[in-house]
Each structure stands twice: as C-alpha cells, then as structure tokens.
C-alpha cells in the first residue's frame, strides 16, 4: 500500500535526523539539505542508505545527483545550465522544485537545491 506524504515525511525526517545530527524541528519541508541542514557530500551517501532501508527502495546514483547532465556540454554553457539542460533536469527530476534554480541556473548552485520536500517527493515517486 502506498504511503501518504505525511508518512513519507516522518521517515525522511527520521533518516535526516540520524544522518545529519539535526533536531526534528529543523527538518521542515522547505529546508535545504546543504544550506539549512548542513549536509556534506558524504552525508548524501548516508542519506541514500537510510532511505533505501526505510522504504525498501533502490536509489540509483544518477537519480538524486544528475552529474551527467551538469557536466554535459550540450546542457551547460559557461557554467550555466541551458534551456535544454533545464528541460532535461525537469524530465529526470519531476519531483524537484526547480523554480528558484531556473532564475539563475548556475551549476555551482545546484548542490544546494534539494529540499526536504524534494526528497519526500522523490521517495513518493519511488513508492507509488
């Protein structure tokens, strides 16, 4: 049976509290993983392990981290993601809110894009 968004949020929250050592209250839907919760690159691997276990899902590397898009010259020019690149990111990550990123889509800012809400949406898309 598919989990509802609240149930997914609670498990995601638990995973992030354990992985990042943050308080429950800090883990809100709008909190960014890097900027607000202090996640470092190695924490993402930890988060992936915890989400895979909590939801019995498999998370392929490219789904949460589309490095192949962000390093593809067809999609990036002068460090900025092109219109085609944005379209590809939206296709690959329909669960992510890219509206802020689109305003100034610098590759270097992509790492700070993901929010807790995005993760909840991603897990939801995997457990439907």
């Amino acid at each position: 049976m598919a989990l509802d968004r609240n149930e997914i949020f609670e498990k995601v929250q638990e995973a992030l509290v354990e992985a990042l050592g943050v308080d429950d209250d800090d883990v809100t839907e709008g909190a960014t993983l890097v900027g607000d919760l202090g996640a470092e690159s190695i924490d993402f691997l930890d988060i992936v392990f915890k989400l895979e276990k909590a939801f019995s899902i498999t998370i392929p590397r490219e789904e949460l981290s589309p490095e192949d898009v962000l390093t593809n010259s067809d999609y990036v020019q002068d460090g900025v993601v092109t219109g085609d690149g944005i379209a590809e990111l939206k296709r690959r990550m329909p669960w992510a809110n890219l509206s802020e990123f689109e305003k100034n889509p610098r590759v270097q800012d992509f790492g700070n894009l993901l929010t807790v809400g995005d993760l909840v949406g991603y897990v939801g898309s995997k457990t439907e």
Partner: peptide
C-alpha cells in the same frame, strides 16, 4: 548494506 558508492 551495499551500494555502488559505498557500504554500511
């Protein structure tokens, strides 16, 4: 558990 990038 085991992943492409690591293990626990």
């Amino acid at each position: 558990s085991m992943q492409d990038l690591g293990a626990t």
